[in-house]
């Protein structure tokens, strides 16, 4: 079942160079599916994420999300519907109020979306922290004092608090050490199975995107240039860009020939 269907999204940033960040972008994501999005820096990945999350307005195009005319929503309608799509960014430090505690950040998300009565919020926040693999003992700790991996788990707990259908993960594991990243990827896969979540997984590391994505879309200069099932696409890349991205992934057990 199609959860998100975007058609003909376009956005040009004003200014001297008039960069076409999105140039007729269409994509769809099924319920419970992970669509990986990969491309070089400046290709428009983050603009696409921001447009889908209603943080930026496109010049043209339409989006249906969970049966709603997503871009037409505004005011109270948008506030009410927003919980369906949540976002996790690369730098969890920048995504929290400097004095926020782990439990407070999650409880705040529950308050904003009016899903849990006030008296039940601390308990619900603790349950969410447990669900992302954090001890509820961390609830009173300022997010700023947590490790990078713990912070990103709090960001994920906050994102799933309003029971979304789709998470947009914009380089969400890119700043983490490999061992921490591996555990956060395991968490994302487990939450997807438990909650039936769909992900738009944006990354620059093709090996990571491949590991978690059912399908992969390749973006370049504001356009999606190819899309396909992860394994099939990587074994038969159609574009020179994807071939270069594949070649740029260091193979662990094969020493590249000296150049």
């Amino acid at each position: 079942m199609t959860l998100l269907d975007a058609r003909g999204l376009a956005k040009t940033y004003p200014g001297e160079r008039r960069i076409r960040a999105l140039d007729d972008v269409s994509l769809s994501i099924a319920a419970g599916e992970t669509l990986g999005l990969i491309g070089p820096s400046g290709c428009g990945k983050s603009t696409l994420a921001r447009v889908l999350a209603r943080l930026a307005t496109p010049d043209a195009g339409s989006v249906r999300l969970d049966g709603l005319d997503w871009l037409a929503l505004s005011g109270a309608g948008l506030r009410h519907a927003r919980r369906r799509l949540q976002m996790v960014f690369q730098d969890p430090a920048a995504a929290f109020h400097p004095r926020a505690t782990a439990g407070g950040a999650v409880a705040d998300a529950l308050r904003i979306h009016r899903l849990v009565p006030r008296r039940d919020r601390p308990e619900a926040a603790a349950a969410l922290l447990r669900q992302v693999g954090l001890s509820p003992d961390l609830a009173r700790r300022p997010v700023a004092t947590l490790s990078g991996g713990q912070r990103q788990r709090v960001a994920i707990a906050r994102a799933i608090a309003p029971r979304p259908r789709l998470l947009v993960l914009d380089e969400a594991v890119s700043a983490l050490d490999a061992s921490v990243r591996a555990r956060v990827l395991d968490l994302l896969v487990r939450l997807q199975a438990e909650l039936g979540l769909a992900y738009l997984f944006i990354g620059h590391d093709l090996a990571v995107v491949r590991a978690v994505s059912h399908r992969i879309a390749v973006m370049d200069a504001g356009q999606i240039i190819e899309t396909g099932p992860a394994e099939a696409l990587l074994s038969d890349p159609g574009s020179p860009l994807l071939r270069r991205l594949i070649a740029a992934v260091p193979a662990l057990h094969r020493k590249d020939p000296p150049v």
Binding site: A30, A31, G32, E33, T34, A178, S179, R181, A182, L185, D186, V189, Q192, A198, D205, L206, A207, V208, R210, A211, V212, S213, H214, P229, A230, E231, L234, I246, V249, P250, A251, L252, H253
Partner: peptide, 20 residues
């Protein structure tokens, strides 16, 4: 060994199936 095991490349086992 742990550091290498955590590192993904294009031959690493995938964490999800081919379809949701």
């Amino acid at each position: 060994r742990a550091l290498l095991a955590a590192q993904l490349d294009l031959a690493s086992p995938r964490l999800v199936g081919t379809r949701p």
